[in-house]
Design a binder for these strands. Structure first.
Lengths: 262, 262
DNA sequence: CAACTAGTTTCATTATTTGAAACTTAGTTT
DNA sequence: AAACTAAGTTTCAAATAATGAAACTAGTTG
């Protein structure tokens, strides 16, 4: 499906992805049917990954599922590689002030990963939200990040979008999308105009380093019954402030003095 | 450090663990100093993992950190391989009723992974709890799970504990621990008698399949200022009920009808 | 500018992966 | 109970990929 190459490790990780993509425990034969690898090869990969606890095997049912070691690694990833812990307080404040759902997202490959979320009303749900994946071409955060990608990376990402038309306003080609990205770059923010779900709109701003690398994006989401694009637009300065604060913290944060002298 | 073997894939995952264990973005040379691999080999692993987005590279600082692809995979793991989504409602109810912190944990290798948590008072913090790792030999959930492990697996796990004495009551040998495990097996539940942190006590019960395989464990935690072991013991029937309900749901859940006929 | 440091590439040697086919269970049918 | 079947597991020579010492590059520093 992904055909990533990168030798044995890449192939093994493809298998891991494949198991994860099922979204449920899966039998060896099922995997085999959807796998480019021959029986024995797939078998050895699945064995290795299970040994490594990246997959877990249910002996009662003979099924494989993503393993708990991933949950543990992800904890580390979330803590050290995501903006979430840095952005925590800022997002809390923003969400309280605007009284709408706030999303913090980052880009993985060509997809958006939501690394944190505040729903003004309900308390947060753990992993159930964090780690969730979405399309880049029809979400506010996705477009905000793409708008600031360097040429080469953008080309890559554009080529990998599916351009499935979820609603009448969804972009269905790289061309129309690219036109909007130019607008976003000019304004510093972008919208989701019910492109993913009818009735759902949002404003999003990118979070950039001082060297203008894309770190992530921040969005405030609402519904067409509660507000409109102009209403959301009025929040931009406030969101911008949050994005800047996160960016500044991110640049200060990372990095310890020097290495212990062995 | 872990020396897991399993060919190239195992080695690459060791490198991944190593990066994760730093808990902060890390330079190539730092990794090299702590790595059993020669320069060129480590270099290639780090490249491959970065290509695969299992590591992310910060070009501004020249540092590596666990990548966001892990967050995404973990979402899948948490959803399909952990008890958390199944146990959600049950844990909500339990936590509301007993008014104390409830932990849901599973075993990874020789360590406890907390996959969900309810703190009656404060709203939940996302990843900061889920994915967190703890020692098995001095936590209620750890001991409850070990008590029901088959001979061979138990031997393995016992050998991998560090037996660091956190408090005066911490087990410091496999022998004393094993004696308690027999008790736990006899009673169906176990305590944490301030073995990890002074003042913190808990009761834990295992979550088992009908074939008696260990799925996870459930605990209610409190402090010595608020209650005592007898107080916690009185909650056991209620906790047991929750554990049974989770076990039943887990057995019904997993598994679709039959495979689509190709 | 020479010496040092951090990161990257090369390439012959070595070790691992590969996958068709054979084999083993366990379950089902005749 | 023998004959089929489907799912999972093992084998082994050939093909491929990983290895790591050493050389190289680029960027700092005394």
């Amino acid at each position: 499906m992904t055909a990533s190459g990168d030798g044995t490790v890449g192939k093994a990780l493809d298998v891991l992805d494949q198991v994860a993509s099922f979204g449920r425990p899966v039998r060896f034969t099922e995997l085999l049917e959807h796998s480019p690898f021959p029986k024995a090869t797939l078998y050895r990969f699945v064995q290795t990954l299970t040994n490594q606890r990246m997959l877990s095997f249910d002996p009662d049912r003979g099924t494989y599922a993503p393993g708990v070691r991933l949950v543990r690694l992800a904890h580390a990833a979330w803590q050290t590689a995501s903006l979430a812990p840095i952005a925590r307080d800022e997002i809390d404040a923003l969400s309280a002030e605007v009284g709408e759902t706030v999303h913090l997202a980052q880009l993985d490959h060509a997809q958006v990963i939501y690394v944190d979320k505040r729903n003004a009303a309900e308390p947060v749900q753990m992993f159930s939200q964090s780690g969730k994946v979405g399309p880049a071409y029809c979400t506010g955060v996705g477009k905000a990040m793409m708008a600031y990608l360097p040429e080469a990376a953008l080309h890559d990402v554009l080529g990998q979008q599916s351009y499935h038309q979820f609603t009448p306003t969804t972009h269905t080609s790289a061309e129309s999308l690219q036109a909007e990205l130019a607008d976003i770059r000019a304004n510093g923010y972008g919208f989701d105009r019910e492109e993913h779900e009818p009735g759902i709109i949002c404003v999003a701003v990118p979070i950039l380093t001082d060297t203008n690398r894309v770190l992530g994006a921040l969005s405030v989401t609402s519904t067409t019954t509660r507000t409109n694009l102009a209403g959301l637009e009025s929040l931009v300065p406030r969101i911008q402030t949050t994005a800047d604060a996160i960016s500044k913290e991110a640049s200060q944060w990372h990095f310890p003095a020097t290495v212990t002298p062995h």
